[in-house]
Nucleic acid binder design. Sequence first.
DNA 1: ACAAAAGTGTTCGATCTACACCCATGT
DNA 2: ACATGGGTGTAGATCGAACACTTTTGT
Lengths: 258, 258
Amino acid sequence: MNTQAEIDDFVLNGHLYYIPHVSLDCAIFGYHDQQLKLLLIKHKAIDGWCLPGGYIKRTEKLVEAANRNVKERTGIDNLFLQQFKTFGDPNRARMDEFDEEKWFEATGIRITKDNWLIDQTISIGFYAITDFSKTELQKDMLIEDCAWFDINELPKLEFDHDEMVSEALHAMRVQLYHYPIGINMLPEKFTLSEIHALYETLLGKKLDVSNFPKKLIALGLLKKLDEKRSIGAHRSPHLYVFDKEKYSQALKDGVVLS
Amino acid sequence: MNTQAEIDDFVLNGHLYYIPHVSLDCAIFGYHDQQLKLLLIKHKAIDGWCLPGGYIKRTEKLVEAANRNVKERTGIDNLFLQQFKTFGDPNRARMDEFDEEKWFEATGIRITKDNWLIDQTISIGFYAITDFSKTELQKDMLIEDCAWFDINELPKLEFDHDEMVSEALHAMRVQLYHYPIGINMLPEKFTLSEIHALYETLLGKKLDVSNFPKKLIALGLLKKLDEKRSIGAHRSPHLYVFDKEKYSQALKDGVVLS
DNA sequence: ACAAAAGTGTTCGATCTACACCCATGT
DNA sequence: ACATGGGTGTAGATCGAACACTTTTGT
């Protein structure tokens, strides 16, 4: 959505190539350096923060639509997005009370009450995890702001997005116990401390230093390298890599990590 | 949908009180006597078997809509329906190739290509488990047939409903490990053998006779009664009931049953 | 020598698995 | 007495939590 012509076309004819009444929203968790953040956006036409989301093209699969929307709105590409729940309570997002003037200012086009964008929608929720330090946020024309917020200092979100975040966080943590993650959040070669901190932060709780790596190694997910990394005045930690084969096997079959 | 007037109104004006482009489908598993079945319906206007489903009223919550649809189509009421996944692949259900004549015969009304029912839809999947021997199936006017099929002898289903069934079965089995079930599938007072057979059938595998009840009793979910049931030429088994309080607690908090 | 961080072992108890065994009942 | 299904006990293996210990490195 980068030219006025595109916006006009979207507003007037969008129902022809998007599926009306159905949207999606993405809770994108960002990890770096023991911090867990969430990506939020502020639409020019809406006061307050939201999850990034949008509509689904008639030719797209759902997960493709989720990826496209995240990329268009925030610049982030190639996320591993997971569907977690669909939201459809009748009062989840009342667009019939929207501020017509504000929308005109923001979009440069008048939206009438019978426009396809105004009708009730259900929304499919996705989540993903990424390394926020590796992302470069780019806004599109309809986005006023786009930023990472610490998971413990989230503002009140619009619509039912607070509920979405809490469900997404829950789904993500449950999945963590059953599928390996990390390949996108860690450098290719990493230390045990790094992956340990990653899991502690994502799960929001302490994990025993000694027991935690045992499981990953017993599962064969981690391979120890002969290299070490110098970290100054301390013992040099070994470097590890994921065993790609075992890793993708575990992604398919599931594992149990307590 | 029990009069021609209702059908006409649904076809012509349904988009006013239902959300277009969004439907739901329900995989209803039925257990009885060590058999696991699935409820399928055959629409008058469609060759072949489908999951029961339908549209969502603009005033309904999703789970309410699922319950209403199941009740309308099959007569079954008060199911505990669980959302498991939303399906939206572009080619999941091509209604643009529908058989116009057949639809006319079935519904008594001509549906044009621009009717709200013909456009592409996404579908929200729900599943539930019930005791099929306690249900009385009732069809509505648009349903030609409605029956329980053994889970291992399912016909090929229409649209993407085969995929839905396999995802529903997987979701149901995963949930079984984390939440207690049984209150709707067993008589109020039941024997250990009965609940054992239930779990074996739903999970599709053998569970150790001795270890299985220990867990349920250790969790406090089962209470032993002082009564026994006479079963003819064998030792009389004890009767058990669920501890309602512990049971609903476990439904909320989750448990682990291996 | 020391501080700080990396990394390893070891114990204890809980839990799971498999299997063998005893009990009750009607014929 | 015995066949049949109900029901219990236990030995061994495995798993997980907790915590103390050793190793490495730069100052």
